[in-house]
Simulated assay, not measured.
Amino acid sequence: MPRFRRCRQPGCHAMVQYPDHYCTRHYEHEAEYLANRQRWARAHQANYQRKYNHLTRNRTVSKSDQYKFYRTRTWSSLRKQVLERDHYLCQYCHKPNSKTVDHTVPIEYDSTRKADITNLATICRQCHRLKTDWEQSYYGTGQGNELKDVAQVTDLLTIRRLMNTKSDN
């Protein structure tokens, strides 16, 4: 189904189909509007990227190392092996066509297991969100949290049970 929005011309209430911004009466403003948007984006892109990299991606040395690891050939080949091993099925809910590979024990908690294929599992988006929330409360991972000294949970069924009971609370 096509999406619509109002014409950007002040006072005009005509509906315009995406990706256009102006109706047929005011279409002469479209090229100027797109040029202004591109000019603004070019001028501000570096600032936003730098802020994201500094505050989120590379906020500590360990987070910077984690990000660099995900851009290596080692990770690329490990990810491919795990997806094929798990047949693209989420190992927590068995949803097909899952394309995310996750560390069972987060590398923020135990960085020695980052390239260990037994520490990797295919996971869908919904389960990944639940598991991330569970990891933050159990291991203390995530921005602003302090790592806890707890036993590593490596059994997928146990993790599934724990992350689902956390979401129920």
Rank of each mutant, 00 (worst) to 15 (best):
H13W: 07
T165E: 15
R50Q: 15
A151H: 07
I123H: 03
H54A: 12
E30C: 05
R39C: 12
Q66V: 02
F69W: 14
Q45T: 10
D168G: 06
D86G: 07
Y70D: 09
Y22L: 05
V82S: 10
K68A: 15
V82F: 04
V16F: 03
N145C: 11
V153F: 00
R59V: 06
V105L: 05
D102K: 01
A41M: 12
R39W: 08
Y92L: 04
R57Y: 05
L157Y: 11
N119H: 10
C90D: 01
R50E: 14
H21I: 03
K99A: 08
C7Y: 01
W75G: 01
Q126Y: 09
Y138T: 02
H44R: 12
Q126N: 07
Y138K: 03
Q66R: 08
K99C: 13
Q17R: 15
A41D: 14
L89D: 04
N47F: 13
S62R: 12
Y109P: 01
V150N: 11
H21V: 03
Y22I: 02
L83S: 05
T74R: 14
T60C: 12
G140I: 02
R42G: 01
T56N: 15
R8G: 01
N53V: 02
R37I: 09
T154D: 06
R73S: 13
T60D: 12
D65M: 10
Y67S: 12
Y139E: 01
S77H: 14
K95W: 07
V82E: 03
H128S: 05
T154F: 09
F4A: 04
E30D: 11
E146F: 04
R73F: 09
V153S: 01
E30A: 06
D110Q: 08
H26Q: 11
S137N: 15
L89G: 00
R57Q: 11
L34A: 09
Q143S: 12
D110P: 02
R79N: 07
P2I: 00
T74P: 04
C23E: 08
N164R: 15
N164F: 03
M1I: 05
W75K: 08
Q91A: 00
D86N: 13
S77V: 13
